[in-house]
Design a protein around this nucleic acid. Sequence first.
RNA 1: GGACCCGUAGCUCAGCUGGAUAGAGCGCUGCCCUCCGAAGGCAGAGGUUGCGAGUUCGAAUCUCGCCGGGUCCGCCA
Length: 580
Amino acid sequence: MNPYRHFIGVIIAALKSMQAAGELPETLDFSAITAEPPRDAAHGDIATNAAMVLAKAAARKPRDIAEPLLQRLKANADVVDGAVAGPGFINLKIADAFWRERLAECLADGLAYGDSRMGEGHAVNVEYVSANPTGPLHVAHARGAVVGDALANLLHKAGYAVTKEYYINDSGAQVDKLGQSTYLRYREALGETIGAIPEGLYPGEYLKDVGAAIAQRDGARWIDKPEADWLPEMRSFAVATLMAEIRADLETLGVDIDVFSSERALVESGAVDSAFEELSRQGLIYQGRLEPPKGQKPDDWEDREQTLFRATQFGDEVDRPLKKSDGGWTYFANDIAYHHDKYRRGFLDMIDVWGADHGGYVKRMRAAVSAITGGKGELDVKLCQLVRVLKNGELVRMSKRAGTFVTLRDLLDEVGPDVVRFTMLTRKNDAAFDFDLVKATEQSRDNPVWYVQYGHARTRSVMRQAAAAGISADGLATAPLDRLVDSSELALVRLISQWPRQVEAAAVAHEPHRIAFYLNDLAAAFHAHWNRGREEPGLRFVIDGDSDLTRARLALVQAVGFVISSGLKVFGVTPVDEMR
RNA sequence: GGACCCGUAGCUCAGCUGGAUAGAGCGCUGCCCUCCGAAGGCAGAGGUUGCGAGUUCGAAUCUCGCCGGGUCCGCCA
């Protein structure tokens, strides 16, 4: 249960009874009412803005609504005290028993604690990574992969029917260049001297293996053939090989994609034509001319009549071309068809996770989704800003294979998937991020990966010690939780009760990083409580001669472990049982 | 020239979609501990939320204009 959502219901019920008694107008909008933990715990457990939000519509002063509302709320069995404060807040103190019930809920649910039905089973498509199959994945892809994957897991936990999707850009000029680059490496593998890789082709050494593999398989059969003969073969072989590597990297990272969509297959199915027809039918296509970009003018600018989509009707700055001068579709046209395809597969909610270099593309894509779905579909784009990899503050460039950039594989070899995943989620996606390999693996308070894992390991360590002392961890959900009376124990119970709310809030906002900060807070509270046990032996978990108290405290410890595991599961990180 | 992202303590960052006295870690200062329930504990100082207007009961949060950093800008994907 999300306690805050629960109390919003209680507050609205009280307001309705005030309406019934003629104390408030009949029609009021309750949607802006919030119930949240006050910033200062001294204010109580729940603060609501109800009186302030309704004041204007009710034509009353906030406090004149707050006072009678508070009286009605005090009648609720869970509310033990309350006060009107500041400009009209109502602060409520909630019975300890109510929070202990949340703890019991956590113990009963285990890793499922925090699962929400908020999403009501609605289908959401989360598309991420979608790296071109022209080389190995690098750090920027890693961030997108982790953010997208955690967001998908989060939405799943919040009750949505989530599909994780990867769009393979296996069509167009870039893939032709890949095929040409592969052909050079193929000839090289057969003993030719190819010299420097021409400008515009892919120079990366990873293509040597691909060329050699084709030479191994086909021998010299492509050597004297025209490009039209060998290009399709080179292209598809290279794409297949590189996609296999990408999938292997994703697997190591723990990313499990549900659907791989091929751009080439989409184009060949005629999906672009049908999307185009749909937009034409709506009168959103026309022939026209565009202004050249100001300031930085392209030297080969050619003013010409183009086939344009009326993106400006949907909030974009300019209308966008759908056809290239050679008559082929632009990438944008293909992408419209792709999102149209998602819509036809039943997705009204679409989330795309992109790199910062695609920032200029967001408005037109949102415009296109709005148009192609008749306003029914909604696209949210999460832009991941740049990641720089550092080692003790020094910029790292370490890939031998790829030359200039840090590959995901390098990163995984260096620190492992769990550290990559958690660390990538300690920053909101739209802020640039420095990934320091040393700090990410160091055992210190300011490394949240270590600190949270240590918190979990400590919960396991307590359970092991209890077991060694002959105390069973079975049936802790029915332990006498009313024996938990210490203030820092109750503070932990309240923090645990926050988990369902954290899940819902992070899911609504599409912000998985919030989970990292919550887990860090929970771990900090647990470590602090543990430390109190060093000064005051009476606060330790295992108390000789009082098995009820011990079981109640073990229940609390186990619940902390459940919530941390549950959060790490959203992140795709494995909780550890002991630190090494 | 334009679009998008960022700007919060000395440093690295939160801030729950407009709420109360803006928080945490590191660093700094001062006490305490040397306990294996280890990889420290407690407390304190530290802020004109880049600058300036506006919106309203109320702004770090929304709007506009500047400043600084980043990403990008038809016929690439």
